[in-house]
Simulated scan of single mutants.
Amino acid sequence: MYFTSLQSREGKMQIHGNHYREHIEISEQMLKEMVKKVKVTPTQGRLLFFREHEIEALLVYVHEVFSHLNQLIEQTKFSSGYGDFILVAEDFRFGLCIERTEYYYELSIWGCKRRD
């Protein structure tokens, strides 16, 4: 369900770099900047991350994800290009996602209030 909804989401921002490592670095920086600007989120959400042959969907406190973002980027192996970064509310009314595509990454954010 999550991936079907993510595919149909409009307003994604493309993240381009000269090579895959640069895609990752720019994506991490954009993710960190977005987290700083988010003012209101749901209390809990699902952090999806990839394992060998399955996808885990941990129930987490969103503020804890934001507080420990650097460690989670490493733990989920997003920083090595292994998987996407997907944080969504159970009801899918909130999301902060960076998805890998063949040639670039895509950033989606919805359902949160941002600081100006």
Rank of each mutant, 00 (worst) to 15 (best):
M1P: 07
M1W: 02
F3K: 13
F3H: 15
F3D: 14
L6G: 07
L6V: 08
Q7T: 09
S8M: 06
S8L: 07
R9H: 02
E10W: 00
K12I: 02
Q14Y: 02
I15M: 08
H16D: 11
G17P: 11
G17R: 12
N18D: 13
N18Y: 05
H19Q: 09
H19F: 11
Y20P: 10
R21C: 01
E22L: 08
I24Y: 04
I24D: 03
I24N: 04
I26T: 14
I26S: 09
S27V: 05
S27M: 09
S27Y: 05
M30T: 08
M30Y: 07
M30S: 06
M30G: 04
K32C: 12
K32H: 14
E33V: 07
M34L: 13
K37R: 15
V38L: 07
K39Q: 14
K39Y: 09
V40S: 12
V40T: 15
T41V: 13
T41K: 06
P42E: 07
Q44H: 13
G45W: 02
G45M: 04
R46V: 03
L47P: 12
L47R: 02
L48K: 10
L48G: 03
F49S: 00
F49H: 12
F50C: 07
R51C: 03
H53Q: 15
E54G: 06
E54Q: 13
I55D: 08
E56D: 05
E56S: 08
L59W: 03
V60L: 08
Y61G: 12
Y61H: 15
V62D: 11
E64G: 01
E64F: 03
E64W: 01
V65Y: 01
V65W: 00
F66S: 10
F66R: 08
S67R: 14
S67N: 15
H68Q: 15
H68V: 05
L69S: 11
L69C: 11
N70F: 02
Q71T: 13
Q71G: 11
Q71N: 13
I73G: 05
Q75C: 00
Q75A: 10
T76P: 01
K77G: 00
K77F: 01
K77M: 01
F78E: 01
S79N: 14
S79P: 00
S79H: 09
G81K: 08
G81T: 06
G81P: 00
G81Q: 04
G81L: 03
G83E: 06
G83Y: 01
F85K: 08
I86V: 15
I86C: 10
I86R: 08
I86G: 03
L87N: 05
L87I: 09
A89M: 04
A89V: 04
F92P: 00
R93S: 14
R93Y: 00
R93V: 02
R93D: 11
R93Q: 11
G95T: 06
G95P: 07
C97L: 07
C97F: 08
C97M: 05
I98S: 04
I98Q: 08
E99N: 08
R100D: 10
T101I: 01
E102F: 10
Y105R: 13
Y105E: 11
E106F: 00
E106W: 01
L107V: 05
S108R: 03
I109C: 13
I109D: 01
I109L: 09
W110G: 04
W110T: 04
G111S: 09
G111T: 08
C112I: 05
C112L: 05
R114H: 02
R115K: 14
R115N: 12
